[in-house]
Design a protein around this nucleic acid. Sequence first.
DNA 1: AGCAAATTATTGAATCATCAACCAATCACG
DNA 2: CGTGATTGGTTGATGATTCAATAATTTGCT
Lengths: 158, 158
Amino acid sequence: MGDVRWLTETEIDTWLKFRSVVELYPGLLDSQLRRDSQMTHMEYQVLAMLSEAPDRTLRMTTLAARTTSSLTRMSHVVTRLAQRGIVARSACALDGRATNVTLTDEGHDLLVAAAPGHVTQVRESFLDALSPAQLRQLDDICDSILTRIDPEGKMTAR
Amino acid sequence: MGDVRWLTETEIDTWLKFRSVVELYPGLLDSQLRRDSQMTHMEYQVLAMLSEAPDRTLRMTTLAARTTSSLTRMSHVVTRLAQRGIVARSACALDGRATNVTLTDEGHDLLVAAAPGHVTQVRESFLDALSPAQLRQLDDICDSILTRIDPEGKMTAR
DNA sequence: AGCAAATTATTGAATCATCAACCAATCACG
DNA sequence: CGTGATTGGTTGATGATTCAATAATTTGCT
């Protein structure tokens, strides 16, 4: 239990900026997708990950890991998407505990319709805001941070 | 209405990492503060900003801007903090529309008790994860992003 | 002065996330 | 081969955030 190392002025500045970004960014993504495509960013991410998976199907745990979601949260998200006919749940033949989630055709149509707006948002607020050098720097920076906050890579599996 | 510029593989990689960070980070801060100090990160930020203000008092709008919060959200947060005796609302003498929010002594004690744990969390998950060069890079990167997502600086006033 | 527009803030309903508790299936290992 | 531990997943209650609507005050203009 050593003493706390308080932050310097410079550290506070950088920290508060970073804090603003992580606090503001999720809401930005949510509001564009909600407004234009009636879905949250987490829902979009689910559709995107399923659309790239074999048979457009993934297990709950995998889906949660690929979208940085807790299993609990994913369960609620999938319940809502299933009620809307966007995904379908099914039992996994290989493991009786597991649940498979499949993207329906309807869900795929929804993703196709939502993608341009979302990609444009990502370009305008992120990719086009930074130089190629900054993007490379940020890639490394995110690696370092993720190593600290999710050492096992449980939440960030690819 | 031009065509969408889809993302390259490299862009997708960087984007998904960044996305993971912004998605994971707020929850990390919340869970440490909730566990150790019975408050959310937004509540901590309110206490921190008030503690540095003259008379430990700020107007709602200023408080919202300094904590990257909407006014609506801040109104709810302040209602809860006031119920717990951590802050006090009062009318602003200069502008009949405005509300002042003041940190109580009890609130200040709570902040003092919570600060070491929070600062340690910030060091371990952020400042100590990055080199001095990376911190400088990230400072610039955050400036660029914030310019895009909050051009007027409405949410990020200091 | 007088009135429209903008600013400041609050409220209530709906939505979403988190936490704790739980259940069922599989694994590890004596 | 059985039993305790682990893994995979769901549920319901609680709490926080957003959205839309509303109200009161001030500002800008003529």
